[in-house]
Every structure is written in structure tokens, then in C-alpha cells.
Design a binder for these strands. Structure first.
Lengths: 197, 197
DNA sequence: ACAAATAAGTGAATATCATTTACCATGGAA
DNA sequence: TTCCATGGTAAATGATATTCACTTATTTGT
């Protein structure tokens, strides 16, 4: 054993990269294992050396994306003070991610939800992790008095997450453009102050 | 021609009913055409007389559910005055639907999103219709001054829809219980007045 | 009432893929 | 050198969605 951290073999990375590239043009369902193997320059058999099945490759593509996302989020939050300011930033960063990484958006909003395995995958574990970050900020805001304390934090998180995802859905499905700055400003304003006049 | 309205042949209904029943216990993906045919008491070939493919059956199950839902929503809104009161009611009705009709919730939140065809199906047309109803209420509220006019109606709709769906997602995935009344009260309060203290 | 046409229904054949399996090559480690 | 782990191959298998040629029932026009 050379290092304690497992380093991915080149074949595995080629497969993940190939799928990510293919997903820019085509839907996951429409792709065959053979398509992915050809694009990766490997044989179909090798795929099953590294992945449990077709779905598993997709989960790894998502995991890679989400890894980058979490690193970025972490960085984005550095130096920001106050729960509300952090929420503003996190809303902006999330929308930016969905708007500028269409493959990521399509995978997480459309392609993975229909399989049980996803909810037990490493990728979904990262989603939970993000959820926890969001939840902690909300709790911090309640503790500091910035956020009202008569709404359960989980509901606030669901509202933020749900609003963002739903707002980016049409973009993912029909490729309708989204202006990150506009969307972030509007959604933040809406969630912080409500819709009542 | 007896009537101007096409009446579904019994075979077709049996197939839709069979799938709906099967979905109470199993996930769509895990079901084969043969499973559905056996449960419906028809042969596999017949299914392709009535449906374009496996997916198409699912879309018809959803369409049936959504038809009922829209009728119910229409009834629920009768006699209610004021955009905010209507929104309150529509939020409650939606949550009630997701909470008490688990098959419906699973289909719409998890099972259909991953196919292009869905977004061109009759079922999705009904979703659009519901969207329009919601949008009209929001516009009515803006016109009457009940709802603030500095947020585009589509964002308000996305927030309502997204928050509800996300709040019901864990229920659909992990079968976690949801109290309709509590959820409706909290979500309404949150969306109307925002999360800022 | 009766032929013609249309719809409902059958079940075996087909085709598409995801997945498995048996096998080859190579490069350390003992 | 031998052994074994790892990366890789290619053909076989198996599951299953879909098609097709066919039969049976049901309307419909005359």
C-alpha cells in the first residue's frame, strides 16, 4: 500500500468523465453501457470492475460535482458574519451552481430521484451534509435572534431548498435561462420577508 | 359513434388500476410489464394496444390522480374570498394530497421526472394547469394589494410549490409521517411572513 | 338479420441492453 | 521464480420491453 488515501485508477476516472461529458448532450436513460464504454475508451466489462451498475456511475458523477460544490460553499462562507448574511450567500451560491452547471442540475433535479439506491449512495450523503450546514446556520440565526424562533428549522431549510430547486427546474428541463443575480435577490427577499404585503 | 366523449375500454382501466395498486407496495422501476399484465389479468401484448410503453401507463396513473386533485382543488376553493385565504387553502389541500396519497406523491416527486416524455404528457399538462390556477390567485392578490408587488408572481409560485414538495419529500422517500395541519400552518406562516424576525 | 369493419385480446418471437463470467497481461512483492 | 493483485478484455447470458402475425368479439351500416 503506497498511500492511505485510495487513489482512483485511471480507468475509473475515464468512465466518470465520459459519462459527465455524454450527459451534456443526452439524457442518462438514453445512454447505454456500451455508449459510456466507447466514450471512455474502455470495454463494457471493465465498468463492472469499478461500479456496481449503470446507476452507480451516475452517482459517482454527482458525487464529484457535489464535492466541488461543498468545497466552494465552504470557501464562499468564509469571512461572512451573521446567519442571514450566510443564508444570502448560500442561496446565491446554490443558484449559481444550478444555473452554470447544467449537468449537475439535471442529475440532481431529474435523473437520480427514481432509484432507491441513490438515497443510500455516497452522493446522497453529501446532500445530507449540505442540509446539515444549512440547518446549522438557521439554528445559529434563531439563537442570535436574527431568525424567528416559532418555525421549526427543518421547515425553513425545506423552504429555502425547495424554492431554489423549483426555481431552477425549468432551466434544467427546458433550458430556459436563469439570471443568478436576479433569482438570488428575488428569492432571498421573498424568503426573508414573506409574500404578504 | 355513441357518445362524443371517448369512454375508456375496460382493459385499459384494468391496466391502470393494476399499476396503481402495485405501486402501493413496489417501486415502478422494479415492476415488469409482465407483473403489470398479470396483476391486470391481461396479456402483455394488450398493454401495447393502449399504451405507448411502460412509462406511458405510469403517466396515465398520474393523470387520473391529478384529475381528482384538480376537481378537489376547485371544490376546495369555492366560497373562499381573498387571495391569501385561497393560498392558505391551496397549501393545505396540496399537503393533504401528498400526505394521504402516498402513491401519488411517490409518482410525482420521484418516479416520473427522469423521462423527457413526461414533460410532454397529458399528466404534465395538468400540472401546468394547476400552476396557472396558482399563478392567477397570486396575480389577483397583487392586484388587490394583499400580496406585495415587487416580486414576480412566478417566483412566488415556485416558492409555494417548491416548499410544499420539498417538505413532503422525506415522507415520500422514507415514509416519515407528516401532519397535514401542522405542516400547512407552518408553511403558510413561513411563506406569508418570511423567516426574518 | 348479416356481412364488413373495427376493436379487444393473445402469445410467441425479437431485439435491446445490463450484467456475468471466464480469460489474458503485467508488474510488483515474497 | 513464483504468486498474487490489479487492470483489462470479449464473448455469453439473462432479463425484459416491445413487436407481430394472428384469433375472437363487437359494433355498424344496409
Amino acid at each position: 500500500m503506497q498511500t492511505s488515501v485510495a487513489i482512483s485508477p485511471p480507468g475509473k476516472l475515464k468512465i466518470i468523465d465520459a459519462l459527465r461529458t455524454l450527459l451534456e448532450e443526452r439524457t442518462f436513460e438514453s445512454l447505454t453501457i456500451s455508449d459510456i464504454a466507447v466514450a471512455a475508451g474502455v470495454t463494457e466489462g471493465l465498468i463492472y470492475k469499478y461500479f456496481k451498475g449503470k446507476r452507480d456511475i451516475l452517482h459517482h458523477v454527482l458525487k464529484e460535482h457535489y464535492d466541488h460544490f461543498l468545497v466552494q460553499i465552504d470557501r464562499d462562507l468564509q469571512g461572512i458574519d451573521g446567519a442571514l448574511n450566510k443564508l444570502r450567500k448560500i442561496i446565491w451560491s446554490s443558484i449559481e451552481r444550478y444555473a452554470n452547471h447544467r449537468v449537475f442540475a439535471r442529475i440532481i433535479l431529474l435523473e437520480v430521484r427514481n432509484s432507491e439506491e441513490y438515497f443510500h449512495s455516497e452522493a446522497y450523503e453529501l446532500v445530507r451534509q449540505f442540509n446539515r450546514i444549512l440547518l446549522d446556520i438557521i439554528k445559529e440565526g434563531i439563537a442570535s435572534g436574527e431568525i424567528r424562533d416559532n418555525i421549526p428549522p427543518a421547515y425553513i431549510r425545506n423552504a429555502i431548498f425547495g424554492t431554489i430547486e423549483h426555481s431552477c427546474l425549468n432551466r434544467a428541463i427546458f433550458n430556459e435561462p436563469v439570471s443568478t443575480n436576479d433569482a438570488a435577490r428575488i428569492i432571498t427577499e421573498l424568503l426573508l420577508n414573506g409574500i404578504k404585503r
